[in-house]
Design a protein around this nucleic acid. Structure first.
Lengths: 338, 338
DNA sequence: AACGTTTCCGAAAACGTTTCCGGAGAATTA
DNA sequence: TAATTCTCCGGAAACGTTTTCGGAAACGTT
């Protein structure tokens, strides 16, 4: 448990701590031989500088924090891999925390990271988060923050987004072009911007093509498989099945699919399905699920680069919003069979 | 960026820093009114003690670290949720790091966490990790460490395991009872203990039932879908198909399934499949995959409790190995159809 | 020989806390 | 009244670093 400190090394070498420090920080005012000697002895003793003490002094840590709501679905883990890719190269360590979709936990995570003096954070908000005052404060203080996926319009920071509206529009059009008329949308949690955008894309596509719909065509569902199951079961019981469904994400689409299959319905013959934020599941499931693919790793890489830029320029910096492109992967679940 | 410190509060209140500290740490030698007054003013000023300074002084941080090789597959994220469950209740923060199956990154992660003065770590080793000297040192120093899933026999610490041998044995017997004779095993990376145990379970089950096999029945594959695809494609090309396959985990089984389906083979009629470490995929895929379910969250909770115990008893402590139980979920992919 | 430059290193302050030690005053006891 | 014990608080050291400042020695210049 005893860590060897700079003082131990100094004592052993009969020199001052400042000299040791100089050796480790490659300062100009130290003789090469002294430095090499110190370094070799220090290594032998198993010494390495305590970054915590360093952070306390320098008020920064060469660490960055990431807070995500969950990593049950594959989306966030994949983004994180992209983030790590960029930061590891630059010598930063990445601390990851999970808010469990809880506002309180999220806030605690943020504070923990702040207290660890991370140099910046990449955040995706929890479902519960409505009040973003704490983030406003951080931003006002000049703390480097980048948001992705779950963002708040109230915050002026860099953001990495996906054009949910556009791709929801395209996805819905795809269903329309297949010839479906009665189309439902299983929506995400109402509070989230991404839910709203996907919903609006859906609505506008129907409007453009003059497909009639009413409020019952749009059902707030959620992001989990269980949400899709629950809502689908209700529709089945009510005997109110559409010809096609555009779901807010893959898990909810898959939940719906499971329930339909359980009740003996055929996909896409009885009900066609289309998901969003494609996961590995999409092509493995039967029938394979048509879905909009997001460039997950690229989202992570982009967020990381934006944050890095912000950290390095320290102040002179304008918030940027980067919108990345996706792809509609058409598979069997949405095709109109003749 | 300027954080308000204990000194600022002291200055404002015209008292010493020690008094402020006492107020915050609820010491006995402070008058109640003084404490309340200090607390209210401090809150107003937005002060909260810097845990980093505290950690430096106390040499512990109320944080614990978790290092896992990946979180692409659902296994590790689920374990982490179990870990968090326990620690959040106890007021610990959980820092998560990902080694990306790289030994070097893993070591850096460990050092980062150590430097953050986490009070203990829960670790699952990377694929590459052979040399565990660094862990030996930590253990010798009395640093609380708990391993799970990917462990090393060289390390004397608490471990949370799954009886891979037993369940591999059961799984293989299930295939035998179905009447399959020519059974192959798609194995995990050879260096891992879990791979070896699952392989041995497979072998011993065949031996017990006097089913013949040779070394070509066991093929080192890997943990990813792509590994399953690669190996299966080779078998198909070589026209060397077994009647049934026991795969080291679900993704490899699923990879094999994908490739078989692609080439027009039927499952389980042409080749039966059985996975391990059941994921959500298992029941969603077509046909649903028979698999051994591990109690992932429970693994996390157990590891967390063991670590907590070790942290709290500080020294007087004997390493424990907990082996948790699982379940074989039989689904269509392994059934012998008449 | 006197002076100015380098080169190298040590002392000490600083980062934000907690805690030990001691001291002033009040309250209790003898 | 004197002595003792409490109660409450301030001063200072400590945690492990980096960095500023200054100083000693060695060297080069007039």
């Amino acid at each position: 448990m005893k860590h060897v400190t700079i003082k131990d090394v100094a004592k052993k070498l009969n020199c001052s701590v400042s000299t040791i420090s100089r050796a480790f920080n490659d300062k100009y005012d130290i003789r090469k031989e002294t430095r090499d000697h110190i370094l070799s002895i220090a290594k032998e003793m198993g010494y390495s500088p305590n970054p915590m003490a360093k952070s306390l002094l320098k008020q920064c840590s060469n660490q960055i924090g990431v807070v995500v709501p969950e990593f049950i679905n594959a989306f966030f883990p994949e983004v994180i891999i992209g983030i790590q890719e960029v930061f590891i190269k630059k010598g930063y360590q990445v601390l990851i925390m999970q808010s469990n979709e809880s506002h309180i936990t999220e806030l605690e995570n943020i504070k923990t990271l702040e207290n660890n003096m991370v140099d910046g954070m990449i955040i995706s908000l929890s479902l519960e988060t409505k009040n973003v005052d704490y983030y406003k404060d951080l931003i006002k203080q000049g703390f480097p923050l980048v948001f992705f996926n779950r963002v708040s319009n109230e915050l002026e920071t860099s953001k990495v987004l996906f054009d949910d509206y556009k791709w929801a529009f395209f996805a819905t059009e795809h269903l329309i072009y297949q010839g479906y008329k009665k189309i439902f949308h299983l929506g995400g949690p109402a509070g989230l911007v991404i839910s709203q955008n996907r919903k609006n894309g859906f609505i506008d596509a129907l409007r453009k093509h003059k497909i009639s719909f009413d409020e019952s065509s749009i059902i707030e569902t959620g992001f989990m498989i269980s949400d899709g199951e629950r809502v689908m079961e209700k529709l089945i019981v009510e005997n109110n099945l559409p010809e096609a469904i555009f779901a807010v994400n893959d898990p909810s689409a898959i939940g719906a699919m499971k329930m339909l299959k359980k009740h003996g319905y055929k996909i896409p013959e009885d009900v066609a399905l289309l998901g969003f934020t494609e996961s590995k599941l999409a092509e493995l499931i039967d029938p394979p699920l048509t879905s909009v693919a997001q460039p997950t790793k690229e989202i992570g890489r982009t967020a990381a680069k934006l944050l890095l830029e912000q950290i390095e320029t320290k102040g002179i910096f304008v918030p940027q919003t980067v919108i990345l492109n996706g792809r509609l992967n058409v598979r069997e679940s949405s095709m109109k069979l003749k």
